[in-house]
Computed example of a mutant assay.
Amino acid sequence: MINGLVFTVGTLALALSPATVSTHIRLTEIPVLVVGLAAILAANALLLRSSLAPLDQLASSMGRVDPPRRSDRIDDRGTGDLRHLIASFNAMLDRLETERTSASGSALAAQEAERARIARELHDEIGQSLTVALLALKRAVDKAPTGLRGDLHHAQDAVRGSLDEVSGIARRLRPDVLEDLGLHSALNALCSEFTQATGVDVVKHLDAHLARLDPNIELVCYRVAQEALTNVARHAGADKVRVDLHATDEHLTLRIADDGKGGVVTAGAGITGMRERALLVDATLTIDSSSSEGTQIRLIVPVHVQSRPR
């Protein structure tokens, strides 16, 4: 249609204008032909460029597609076949994100179930065995000669330390405080444990009036904060961490920022896991990492969303 329109206009211009072309082209007619050809090509190029502009948006959107992130849809629907192509591309993105979210949800649900199973076994099996061993050592200390009591006390301390460590691992694997008391109390406990384990100060600004949320939203926020603090302990070399949690009628925002070395270039398994968890509740996860200002992780969750079952 575009090319037909251009050639129709060119034909009408040639027919209605005083310009003529002889059987043997004269030198005076050559500029007229050149100008006419240039006008036709320029008009054709401009019309095609404006008509095919949505293809540039489509190619740009294809280049930005990243599995762990939510991709933007193309608003410009184009015309004709382009409209069908863009609609098909948007529908493909919807299917891919739905399937990816479903697969990630199943994998993370299995992971949480396995965490809970391991935590129960640590508490019920290993924890009880260590408790029995601790009681047996206490009875042995009471009956042992004075010369052996020192060694038995050292053994008691070692078993007691192992019992505390097993209990700590079980709590990290299965945060009972999250299910019993909610996200605010769970983050408070997580920050306190982090400070005790690493010596890094945590400045907390947690919304004390935060109501109980969907269990999946609370779990995602807790796991993101847990992974972020773990990364701070392992890689940041920070002296201070800020943990902010506040909610509005529409969004819940969690922010973890440190004053460490930052400079995160590639996403490891921990960051990829955080992005996958964020997708489960339609949340937006952004990571800003400057070598001079540390790393900031921000999770924004729409609180009205119906999250996937865990």
Rank of each mutant, 00 (worst) to 15 (best):
T284A: 06
A225Y: 01
L163Q: 14
L58F: 08
F194W: 04
G199T: 06
T79V: 10
S104Y: 10
I217A: 05
S290E: 07
L152R: 08
D201H: 10
L190F: 03
R115M: 13
F7E: 04
E218C: 07
E179V: 07
D76W: 13
L46N: 10
A247R: 00
S292Y: 00
A13G: 09
A110E: 13
D94V: 11
A283R: 06
R172V: 00
T8R: 02
K204F: 02
L37S: 08
A42W: 10
R100M: 09
T8S: 11
T253I: 07
R69E: 15
D180G: 08
A39S: 14
C191R: 00
S51A: 14
D164K: 05
A133F: 05
S17D: 04
V220N: 03
V177A: 02
I297T: 10
A87Q: 15
I30W: 12
R275L: 09
S292P: 00
K143M: 14
V177Y: 03
R308T: 15
I25W: 07
R83C: 02
E121K: 15
G270V: 09
P31D: 03
V281C: 06
G78R: 03
I86Y: 00
I40K: 04
E276L: 06
G262A: 05
A186P: 04
H235T: 11
C221M: 10
E276Q: 12
V203W: 07
A45N: 05
L252F: 06
S291V: 14
N216Y: 12
Q296F: 00
D259Q: 02
R234H: 14
T248L: 05
